[in-house]
């Protein structure tokens, strides 16, 4: 009788899929996407479009060439594309942006086996590759609303972290909170990023452990070092990094304890680079460095199987 399906238990599933989770991440990125379109004009949306197209196309072709299942349906390449664009200045050459997408998907993700196998964050690694390949293009910031004020390359300005390093005054807290400052196109609007983060937590896509540890560590350390914690939190890519990049499933630890270590580590490295390093910004490097440490963090924070804790105590006691 072959009419029955005989399969191992459990015979019931919660119903979440990778595609649904990635869809939720895309929804969570929408406020920031709208914010960047508003602050940096239609070109911001064009950059997003280019990186998303580049990522999805790279994934599709890569899987074809490697003769593996097509995985663009899981939407992870779309997420990578949006995050990559969020890490680029709005005036970036579109070919450079597309090249970033190829690096993220082909080199960082597919060459290591595709979704779930890459050991560093694809979007961030692509950003770093672009930064070292095209340093000028990657640090030419346009002022918010330049598109209503005049030509694209007419109004370039320094990012708040660069201002901070030079001891210049920063924009007001309200402006920082709303994102009216120079920076990568998706990182400036704090309120939109926080909104997205709240959505992810409410939908249980992520646990707030990593963002809280990351941001908390930055706040405490900058306070101890005599700097203004709020300015550090609201500038640079900290919120984008802590909420959307450090929480990437594949490149963060599986265990809660491990996530605490990971978040604190990201915070420490970020502050060290920002305060003592030569670069004004350290979020990308901190996350990548901690990504590399994930297997070790995981090994050291393995939970003890149920009932094994007692076993050890017994041995120690006898």
């Amino acid at each position: 009788m072959e009419k029955w399906i005989v399969s191992p238990s459990p015979h019931l599933r919660q119903g979440d899929t990778t595609r649904k989770l990635m869809g939720d991440v895309i929804i969570a990125l929408c406020p920031a996407l709208a914010g960047s379109g508003f602050l940096f004009g239609p070109r911001a949306l064009l950059v997003v479009l280019v990186t998303v197209a580049s990522c999805v196309l790279s994934e599709y072709l890569c899987r074809r060439v490697m003769k593996r299942d097509n995985t663009i349906g899981d939407l992870s390449a779309v997420v990578t594309g949006i995050l990559l664009a969020f890490n680029l200045p709005v005036g970036i050459n579109l070919f450079m942006a597309a090249f970033g997408g190829v690096v993220a998907i082909v080199v960082v993700k597919q060459m290591f086996g595709g979704i779930g196998m890459n050991f560093v964050n694809p979007a961030l690694t692509a950003r770093i590759v672009l930064m070292s390949s095209f340093p000028t293009a990657m640090s030419t910031w346009s002022e918010p609303f330049y598109y209503v004020k005049g030509g694209a390359d007419a109004l370039t300005t320094a990012s708040p972290l660069a201002l901070m390093a030079q001891g210049e005054p920063l924009p007001s807290y309200t402006d920082l909170f709303l994102g009216v400052r120079a920076g990568c196109l998706g990182e400036t609007c704090a309120v939109a990023l926080l909104l997205g983060g709240a959505y992810l937590v409410a939908r249980r896509v992520i646990k707030p452990v990593i963002p809280l540890c990351f941001i908390g560590t930055v706040a405490v350390l900058t306070l101890l070092l005599g700097q203004n914690p709020l300015e550090h939190i609201l500038t640079g890519g900290l919120l984008l990094g802590a909420i959307f990049m450090a929480t990437d499933y594949t490149t963060s630890p599986l265990t809660t304890k491990g996530r605490v270590v990971f978040g604190v580590g990201c915070g420490v490295i970020t502050v060290l680079i920002r305060v003592f390093g030569a670069l004004p910004e350290g979020v990308s490097f901190s996350i990548i460095l901690m990504n590399i440490l994930v297997p070790h963090i995981e090994r050291l924070t393995r939970p003890k199987p149920f009932g094994e804790e007692g076993k050890r105590r017994e041995k120690a006691g006898s």
Binding site: L21, T71, M117, L254, F306
Partner: peptide
């Protein structure tokens, strides 16, 4: 599909 290392299995295992 491929494991995405979301950690839900680890969170939910009653036996740690």
């Amino acid at each position: 599909t491929a494991c995405i290392r979301c950690g839900r299995c680890v969170e939910s295992c009653p036996m740690h």
